[in-house]
Simulated scan of single mutants.
Amino acid sequence: MTWSPITMRWPAQSTSWLGDLDAAKALAATELASTGQRLSGLADIATTAPGPVGEAAQGAVAAGHSALAAQLGQVPACLVITPFQSGIGQGRGHQKYLSAPNLLQQLASKLTDVGDSARPAGEQYALAVMFLGTRYDQFADTLGRFNALLPIPDLVRTERRARHLSTLEQEKWVIPSAGALPRWGALPLERCTVVKAAKQSMAGQIAALESYADSSPMADLAGLAGRKAEKARARDKKLADLQALLAGGQADGSMRARLIGPGSPADLRRDLLQGDAPGHEWVLSAGVLLVGSREGLSFVRELVGL
């Protein structure tokens, strides 16, 4: 057998079904124009009435916005210290370490850092949270439990890096086995220029034809209301499950928190360094220091059980 030369051409037989839709496309365009005229005629006739729920709903919405504004109106200043920040952790290469006492010194020094114009000032409270570990996988698990409730970008990046370092440490001695090449796969028809052009040409027309399928507007509205109610029940269940999970929580020794204040930054620094603190046996640690009013710290304070 010989190799035949290839001639690129339009697949007329494979795309013959496009011509079968010309009549339906013309009908859809006509009906769309007619529907627009009918809706314009109903603009002055059709009205909506919220009923007795409208006034109550407006009051609930106003109360909800007020509660959110009161809760989020006093956002505390936030400082995050992790081993992987430049100049913070000790170690070589990608592996960095930061013991708990050194973390505490870093947090305290930032309270009186005159080179940082964004440092807090005035009489305020401070909430310090420490995350402790001796191995990268344990450290990542501890951060993951906190990030599931209050994801702070620096802590999320630290969790991800610690997880990757733990995986690297476990898998660096594993020799992967690869099968013989090449391997079978599916033909990527979605990348074909003909297929992409046909999809782009017919997407809008198919949507217009589907809108004229035999259906009842009232049934569609009832289905929409049912779906919205189902989504509301799902959200309520998710919130209830989270509340039940947090209600049955146990003390986690790998996370420590402390509330100090009120006082000036110098006073907060002094109080933060006083008292018993985790020692150098915790070679991996990260910390969050929140400074603000007592009301502004109330949400996180309750979240960590203080």
Rank of each mutant, 00 (worst) to 15 (best):
R294S: 06
G36L: 09
I6S: 10
G41N: 11
D214V: 13
W3L: 15
V288G: 01
T112E: 10
A67R: 14
K96L: 14
S86Y: 07
A28E: 05
T82Q: 11
P278N: 05
V195A: 07
V75C: 02
A77L: 12
G292P: 02
D137K: 05
V80F: 03
A219K: 12
W10V: 14
A198Y: 09
L289F: 03
I152L: 15
T35E: 10
P52C: 04
F131E: 01
A12Q: 12
A121Q: 15
L127I: 06
N102Y: 07
A28H: 06
L168I: 10
V194D: 12
M255N: 02
H164P: 00
S177G: 11
G54T: 01
R9H: 14
Y97G: 03
A219C: 05
M1P: 11
T15Q: 10
W3I: 15
G261H: 11
V174P: 02
Q138H: 11
A225H: 14
M218Y: 14
P262N: 09
D44P: 05
P176N: 11
A70E: 14
T30L: 13
L209V: 09
G87T: 06
K172N: 09
R163Y: 13
W282N: 08
W3S: 15
R233V: 08
D116Y: 08
G87F: 09
A240V: 08
Q274K: 14
Q95N: 07
Q58E: 13
R191I: 06
A148L: 05
I206A: 12
G51W: 01
E281P: 00
M1H: 08
T158Q: 06
W3C: 08
G287Q: 02
K196W: 04
E31R: 13
S109K: 13
G54E: 04
A277T: 09
K237C: 03
W10F: 15
A70T: 13
H65A: 15
L155K: 05
T167D: 14
G248L: 07
D113N: 15
R227A: 15
T30W: 02
R161A: 05
R38W: 10
V283F: 01
T47Y: 04
L245I: 00
A219R: 07
S211W: 04
T112I: 15
D220C: 08
R163G: 12
L181G: 08
S117Q: 13
L268C: 06
L246C: 02
Q71H: 03
P182L: 10
